[in-house]
Amino acid sequence: MLRLPPFTYRGARTVGDALTYLGDAGPDTMLVAGGTDLYPNLKRRQFEPKVLVGLSGIRELDGVRGSADAGFVIGALTTLRRVAEHPGLRAAFPALGTAAGLVSSPQLRNMGTIGGNVCVDTRCNYYNQTQQWRKAIGFCLKKDGDICLVAPGSPRCWAVSSSDTAPVLWSLGATARLCGPEGERLVPVAALFQDDGIAYLAKRPDEILTELRLPPAAGTRCAYLKLRRRGSFDFPVLGVAVALQMEGGVVRAATIVLGAVASQPREAPAAAALLAGQRLTPELIAAVAVAAARPSKPLDNTDFTHPYRKQMTRIFVARALRRLAGLPESPRDEEEVA
């Protein structure tokens, strides 16, 4: 069977402990919460840390506080299942519950945490392979090699951001609380990422993501749609998160964030701008969907063909908006109803 490489495990009880352990051990140290992303990667030797700092014992980071009116604080160690099933969150920000509830399998959602899903390693089907497989193909930039096998002429890694919850949190204007040796800081989730398959997190390695904070929900309507082959297990190969600030029937502000089409969640601001001050008509939605698909630039390194993923971006954005507008899922359905 595939087994983990040896490591020293230091279980933290407090954030302070974790920071201390992280500081003690130097660069070959990694954080682990639910382990559902890291352990498979370790078994494939995608990382080879000497020390793991375990966060799962930090009780203070487990749980959801707040309300729709005041906003929510979600501890980074809250399991995906609890996020998906939290009644207050579900009512205020249904897209987040949807996204959390679509991650992998029920078992994995009992283990995996929201913090882990936000920070989930980027994925690529040249990279998420065993060491023997990667050796056979000649390794890649992201681990042990010197070229990107997806885009061999490129100087950078094109592994794909594969979080379901990050695009949603980004679209909702969430902020992340990061704790480091020099204290803590709050950064917008939108600023937590950068477009590089290796250095995809703007978080410093000595910082710990401790909380995710959601603003008051008033007027927010949101949706998340996920493309994948099966209804379980599979990572997104396209995610569409849409959040609208509504006033009456008019969109005051909109955010559209695409998942799994770049090395970070990718916002579609030009498309969102088309919505501002407008009512959600089928015609407008169709135009927004076309605009939103423009920043979608998938490459051939996940399931499904990349032209198909690109093509689906428009369809999924339209569907998300149509859902929020209370329209039937596809324009074709409308014709048939009429």
């Binding site: 089907n125 998420n128 392979q129 497989w133 056979a136 193909i137 082959r229 099966r230 209804g231 379980s232 297990f233 599979d234 990572f235 399931d303």
Partner: peptide, 17 residues
């Protein structure tokens, strides 16, 4: 020259759904 996806995640076997 390699099997594209020798894993239970990427070799798509239908689930209950």
């Amino acid at each position: 020259g390699l099997h594209k996806a020798p894993s239970l995640l990427e070799y798509k076997s239908p689930t209950t759904l």
